[in-house]
């Protein structure tokens, strides 16, 4: 694998780590399989890109992007808790609707180019090269800092009263209801929070690659899930802190694995989805395979 492929994978792993954290909140914390993310990732990209073309500071544009993602998540949450639509279906409905909304946000076009516009990465590039470091690495540094900030914020949140209620909502909704928590509320806020992180990721990806596209969200949920599973299998712990950190590491490893596979001549870029599915299956099987071999060795001793 070339230097550029390697650092590119790290960069992708870090920025999509924010998305993975969002997916982690729904899938693992709330036990709420949420496919809204396939729509809220391009939503964040679209909102941020449109803000930038309107002359808004690229850093500032991240706030409306996150807000839009939060709203999208809230809609899925409300469809589930108030209208009692199955969570999976509710999120697919929101995702479908977001496709149209994203095009509307982008003024009726399927993409918004940002090549000539200011982005959050531009100044970092200059800063990095002033230190004599390859400016190619600027995005990786920036995303690393952002990931650390978001991870710290999430760890803090999960230790607050509200965060504990969120964790309990996913673990045992009946119990936490009997302790006075309105689980409809925690689910709506939790799914909103998750999608605001996914939208933040979308906005950063768009600024990094220089364009927001309506199709950039396809496969987000699978990549997020793959990263979570990889992280849990390799680094997983019981505590929420170790879970949060392992999920981000999982995202980086996942992108590295993809880059490695694609660097072999045998694979083509269009094989990406096949590779992703194989990685998820392998990670899901790993604990069982480990257990099988452990049991076999015990049996050997008893015989």
């Amino acid at each position: 694998m070339s230097f550029y492929a390697f650092t590119g994978a790290i960069e992708q792993g870090l920025v999509y780590g924010l998305m993975t954290l969002g997916v982690f909140i729904t899938f693992r914390v709330l036990d709420f399989p949420d496919l809204t993310v396939d729509g809220s990732l391009p939503l964040g990209a679209a909102v941020s890109a449109v803000c930038i073309t309107k002359g808004i500071n690229p850093w500032l544009s991240l706030l409306p992007a996150m807000g839009a993602g939060f709203l999208a998540g809230m809609i899925t949450g409300i469809l589930t808790t108030r209208l009692k639509i199955l969570h999976l279906l509710a999120s697919i409905l929101t995702m479908t609707a977001l496709y149209s909304i994203n095009i509307r946000v982008m003024g009726g076009r399927p993409n918004v180019p940002l090549i000539t516009k200011p982005t959050v990465i531009g100044p970092v590039r200059e800063l990095v090269s002033s230190f004599g470091i390859n400016p190619w690495l600027a995005s990786s540094f920036l995303f690393l800092v952002l990931v650390i900030v978001v991870v710290a914020a999430l760890i803090w949140l999960m230790r607050t009263e509200f965060g504990q209620a969120l964790l309990a909502t996913g673990d045992n909704p009946r119990m936490i209801t009997s302790l006075g928590v309105n689980t409809s509320f925690t689910i709506v806020v939790g799914v909103g929070l998750s999608n605001s992180l996914v939208s933040l990721c979308g906005a950063l990806v768009a600024q990094n690659q220089g364009t927001a596209e309506v199709s950039m969200g396809v496969g987000t949920i699978v990549a997020g899930l793959a990263s979570i599973v990889v992280g849990e299998t390799l680094f997983g712990g019981r505590r929420i802190v170790s879970k949060i950190i392992s999920v981000v590491l999982g995202s980086v490893i996942y992108r590295l694995a993809i880059a490695m596979a694609l660097s072999m001549n045998f694979f083509r870029p269009s094989d990406l989805n096949l590779i992703t599915a194989t990685i998820v299956v392998a990670s899901l099987c790993l604990p069982r395979i480990k257990e099988y071999f452990r049991n076999r060795s015990y049996r050997g001793k008893n015989a």
Binding site: L157, R159, T160, E161, F162, Q164, L167, L179, G180, V181
Partner: peptide, 20 residues
């Protein structure tokens, strides 16, 4: 302790103070 702290806050608003 987390479970008991949840119970200690039964019926009270849950904000951003420490969970335990």
């Amino acid at each position: 302790e987390e479970n008991m702290a949840l119970a200690l806050r039964r019926g009270k608003p849950r904000g951003f103070r420490r969970g335990v």
